[in-house]
Every structure is written in C-alpha cells, then in structure tokens.
Design a protein around this nucleic acid. Sequence first.
DNA 1: TCTAATAGTACCTATTATAGGACTTTACGG
DNA 2: CCGTAAAGTCCTATAATAGGTACTATTAGA
Lengths: 241, 241
Amino acid sequence: MHHAFKDRHTPLYTQAAMLLRHRITSGVWKKGEQLPVIEALMAEFGVARTTIRQALSLLEDEGLIQRARGRGTFVTGAREKPSWLTLDTSWATFLRTLEGNWSKLINVHDEIGYLDLEPGLGKPAAAYRVISRIHGSGDNAYADVCLRLDQRCYELAPKRFEAEFIIPVMESLDQITISSARQVLTIGVADFEVAERLEIAVNAPVGRLRRVLCDEEGTAIYIGDITYRGDLVRLEMNMNR
Amino acid sequence: MHHAFKDRHTPLYTQAAMLLRHRITSGVWKKGEQLPVIEALMAEFGVARTTIRQALSLLEDEGLIQRARGRGTFVTGAREKPSWLTLDTSWATFLRTLEGNWSKLINVHDEIGYLDLEPGLGKPAAAYRVISRIHGSGDNAYADVCLRLDQRCYELAPKRFEAEFIIPVMESLDQITISSARQVLTIGVADFEVAERLEIAVNAPVGRLRRVLCDEEGTAIYIGDITYRGDLVRLEMNMNR
DNA sequence: TCTAATAGTACCTATTATAGGACTTTACGG
DNA sequence: CCGTAAAGTCCTATAATAGGTACTATTAGA
C-alpha cells in the first residue's frame, strides 16, 4: 500500500487515479510516453490489478491516457482546456472586460438594516436594493452574483440597473461618485445553489470575491458578492508599483 | 434517492462532509451554533440518515462539531482555524504583509531554457535559479512556492535570496529594477505534492498565483508560482481607480 | 509462425458503503 | 411526569470496492 494512500474515506482506485493524474500533469510522464505496466504499478502501489485498472479507466475517460492491449498504456495529454476567461481587477480594464458578456437577472428585493460588512471596507447604507444575477460569456455562466446597491443610487436609474452591468451604469451617472473600491477574494467550494446556477459540481472549487465601492463619506454604496467558477475564470492583477 | 453530489468515485458521505466542513470553516455556521437536524440535512442533501451521520462523524473526529443526543449537533471550533491571513496584492502593502511570516527552503536548482511563459507576461531569461519554498505564518504553512529568479539577479546576493523573502531583497538591490509586475490567479485543488507540503487534503481548494516581474527590457527576472491554501488565505485587492 | 509483452476478461470471495425503516435513548421545558 | 425534539441503534437488502487467480486476446518483433 503506497504511503500516499492514507485517506480512508476515498476509494483506493480514486486515490491511485489522483496520483497517476498528478504524475502526468506535472510532467513526470510526457505525452506519448508509456506508463509502467499494470504489474509494475500493482507492485509500486501495493494494490490489486482491479484497483489499477479502475484508476486507469478513470484517466482514460478523461482522455489523459489511452490503453492498448498487447502494447501498453500511453499518455495522450491533458484534455484541451477551454481557454480561460480572464477578468482584470484593475478599474480601467475591468470595465472593458465586461463588454461582450451577458447577464441574467435572477431576483430583486429590498433590504433594510444590512450590517454584515467588515470594518475597514466601509459603513453600510440605510437601505439596499439586492440584485441576484448570473454573469456569462458565450455559452457559459461564469459567475453567480449577489449585489447590494444603495437604494438611493438604485432610484436614479432603476430600469438600467436591472438590465445592465451595475458598475458601468454607476460610472455613467453624474450623481454617483465612487471614491474607493476594495475587493477581498477567498477560495472555497460550490454549495448547492451556486452549483446549480453555474452548472458545476457541488464541492467544485470556486473563488469568492467581495467587492465594496464607497462614496466620499465612506458609505458602501455597492456591495457585491461574486462567486467565480474555478474551472473557467482567472483573475489578472497588476501590482501597480 | 436523487442527490446533487456528482462525483461517482468518492463516497457520498465524504462529499457531504466536505461541504459541511466548508460551511463551518467559511463562517456560514458560527462557533456555538446548531447545525440543522439530521432530518433536515437528509432532505437538503438528498441522502440517507446513515450518510449524514457518517459525514458528521468525520467532522466530529476532526473536532469541528460536537453531537449531543436529544439536543442537536453544534459547531465547536475546537480545531478553530486561525483568522484569515490577508495578503494584499498592491505593491506597497504587499511587502508589508510579508513581515512576520516565515519561509522554509525545500529545494534549489538551476534551469536553462525555460519557455513556459505566456506571451504578454514577459520574455524568459536565459537561465533561472529555481527556488522551492513553503511560506508560513505562526504555526501554519499557507503557501507552496516555486519561483524562478533570473540567474543574473541571483548572483548579486545568493545567500540573501536563499534565506529571505525574494522580493524585498530584489527591492533592496540597486542593480535590480522592477519595471512591471503582473499576477494571474486561478482556482483549483491541491494535488498530492502540495497537499503534503501544506498539510491539507488532496483536492482541497487552493488559489494558484503566477507572478511575473519584468525589468525594463521586458525580461521576466522573477516568475513565481504560488499555491495558497483556500482555508487560510484571502487576498485583498484595491481597484485603484 | 512463434514468442514475449501486455492489457482484457471472467469468476469468486470478502468487506464496505449506501439506503430505508423502525425503534430506543437522551435532553429539556412545561 | 409528560410531551417534544433530536440523536443513536439496529436490522435488512443492495451496490460498490478490493483482492486473488486464471485464462484469453492483441500486438510487435524475430
């Protein structure tokens, strides 16, 4: 039994597949190269033929390998990943990356007395308009969005705020001044609701971004909670020295 | 029974435990709070009592919850995580957030002919010094780092580069000019190697940051590949409008 | 054609995971 | 003490996992 297979709550064949996958994706075995024969893997991992074959079957289903009776098992390469959707986090380019994307409204309601805002990010407004949406690009939903827009801002252009991307609209309105913009990213997994909305697996890795825009008085006029699909989205950051 | 867990190669109870664990560690359920009763979880997750109880048993073994017959199941936080480690991605504050953290050298070697650099991020240098490290804060390793430092820079202060955080050293050397700094963040899961180094579960969600620092000629004098623990680290970004 | 290499198949046994249902035990408040 | 809330236990049945053994089929090279 290979020392790495220590998780008693995951099947051996799943763990073996993980280790084999890692060796392929990390470059230990190159494309076109033959994997060790089943007998060798059995010996190395200390598991039965069944276990190795099940692991290899998983990898073949993913397109990482191809098995050939009489010849061996060969690395075919990682399945081609769809190209990343890159979202920039600098203000100027961020607005530009929204162009060409679509947005679908899920739900809108009012909220009074929202207090769940971390000190240092801003102070809550008296009332918010809560807008739930999905953002997408092409065929894919890439983000689940729940945002709070200060009711006073919302009332300046309600129809636009429900039909367009929020921040460009805010930018276009003279009565709204965005004085600071901060974001905090955490990394977690998709719960049931997000999984369904973004059409990903429960427990799939996601990025969670809280974005807070404040006016001159330090009032949070926009609080966005955005969940990005880890398999589709990458974030680009300029360090601006 | 219809349930939402899609991974056919991981037991349901393991997947359920993963989701429950995430809800606790991400703050959905606070310390002292009662979890929904078993019947409610059965209904929400679409699984049997046995499956829920097995998932809860895992979490109890980890000290995350305590189960009490007749009363309910409560978040104990006995294995409470240190509060979020916040890393800022703006240059000035980024350097400051490194203070107080520790670094452990894993491996150092030379590399010639590195080409795996995406156009737009910079052009590769002729030779790099590859430094593998773990970064930590207090008792916890929070990042697995594999960085490439242009050999010419490395030779300016080899002992310092192997003992200290790289970027502050680069900043302190007059002969090195950092002209641009870009970062790209993706979200994925920990593979075998990272899991072992950071002492997290294989497949735990992680953030992967590629950071590229270029000199005036556009040569990538530093290429850092940093894997952050999703359960410990959050990244703060200023939008700099 | 033959041999060696290698994966695939078949069959069996044993254990674990999963699921459903019913009943028991414990805790707490009135 | 009683009723309600909630976890714990037990039983049955099916499916999944894992290991072991032996034989078959395919491929490539001499």
